[in-house]
Design a protein around this nucleic acid. Structure first.
Lengths: 232, 232
DNA sequence: TTAATATTGTGTCGCTGTGACACATTTGTA
DNA sequence: TACAAATGTGTCACAGCGACACAATATTAA
């Protein structure tokens, strides 16, 4: 006997990594859901995720990205940790912990790939309630949505639901879809100009009316947090 | 062979729960640190925490509370998840994940108990840098501090560093210690009155000058988030 | 060619909440 | 009795968002 720690003294909980990948498509907030191929909850819709591969994943961030890329074939434009969900009851196999990530992507980046597969699908967030969802994923999605809505009020995260080049009108529309309220175009422009996070593109684009100024996110900048929330 | 999932297909990462318990004492922000009695990092200071007891802990919240109570003999007044930290390198025993909680308590609640033990100690947050700290706990503490500072700007969480009854002056002092800046007494009073989160106590208390109004948190209320940050 | 419509972009006023600061109030102390 | 120290109140300025009018520019229909 030594003073080294016995690694098997405690049974480890079941540990998984899941992601809530959002996008805005057809003026609705959507979540990427996967039809489960394994027990438990086989056949139900669940969040994309799985076990850490401790031989190749250097962090759980890598696990989340890997699992998302398996389903979408691309990396999300934004990824951050949401929260861990744990409990003795949430998985029939025993005490389990799932570390949940919260991700954003432009619909165009994945749509072509998704449409060829029928076990991966964008599901309208308002339709989640009426579906049979695996584990506690319904609650998880709800929490992720609330976090996204909060962030949309004081930051520019919603740009990551848009392609590289975007217009004020597109960003306004995405934000409004996320928070479920209309916002003032003027307020959004003020934020875009003060954030020092975007650069203007010379070439303008048609949009049903006057040509629209295009923007892109400056490379290497962090998300700016504003000191006030939008309200309306 | 069946279609049931083989629970041993993947090796599970090492999973622990740690907490960053803050308090404000002697006009300084302090963190509860524990002198490690086991390998690895035996003898170094580390965060209070440990493994989940999957036979008795119903969630990881319970694990965090249990571990904190082992060290302080009381439950913290505020507890929320901070973030999970993971990696192949952060623990010499292999890939590990620690789910970190962020907690607050009034110094008075624990001081008497702490002072009788020499392997548990309040450490000034500014002195952490110059100490030898286990694992990546130095980084974790830094992140927890940043979160606390942010929250102090738009919420009333700092009250959980105070005893049940407190004055505006005490709350002002605690907030200023946390964020490292002075704030306007007037702004704080406006927030206290508009938050509808506190009730006034009839009995006033002496404070070196005029008698001070006492407040307490209304029972059963949630933390209020304001729509603006304090700045100054 | 002209008018109607749609969308983008700008100018401006009001509102709210914070910062700043003066001043009154109340207690302890020299 | 005067002064210091802290609490509590009143008020003005400022920043940023909401609201809205209006100008600018492109498309479409008469």
């Amino acid at each position: 006997m030594t003073n080294t720690y016995d690694i098997n003294e405690f049974k480890n909980p079941l540990f998984t990594v899941d992601s809530v990948l959002f996008t805005v498509k057809d003026d609705a907030l959507k979540v990427l859901m996967v039809k489960r191929a394994n027990e438990p909850f086989i056949g139900s819709w669940g969040l994309p995720g799985g076990f850490v591969d401790i031989d190749s994943d250097t962090t759980t961030d890598v696990t989340a990205l890997r699992k998302l890329e398996e389903k979408t074939s691309v990396a999300p434009q934004y990824l951050e940790q949401l929260q861990a969900f744990s409990g003795i009851d949430r998985d029939p196999r025993g005490f389990s912990v799932t570390l949940v990530y919260f991700a954003l992507i432009a619909a165009q980046e994945v749509s072509s790939h998704i449409e060829t597969i029928d076990d991966v699908q964008w599901i309208d967030i308002d339709k989640i309630d009426s579906l049979s969802i695996a584990f506690d994923h319904k609650i998880i999605i709800e929490q992720a949505k609330e976090r996204l809505q909060q962030k949309a009020l004081y930051s520019m995260v919603p740009v990551y639901c848009l392609p590289e080049y975007f217009t004020v009108g597109q960003l306004k529309s995405v934000i409004e879809t996320i928070i479920g309220k209309t916002i003032q175009r003027k307020s959004l422009i003020r934020r875009i100009e003060s954030a020092d996070m975007f650069e203007t593109i010379d070439e303008k684009v048609k949009s049903g009316g006057r040509l629209a100024q295009q923007y892109k996110v400056k490379s290497g900048v962090d998300i700016v947090n504003f000191e006030r929330n939008l309200s309306s």
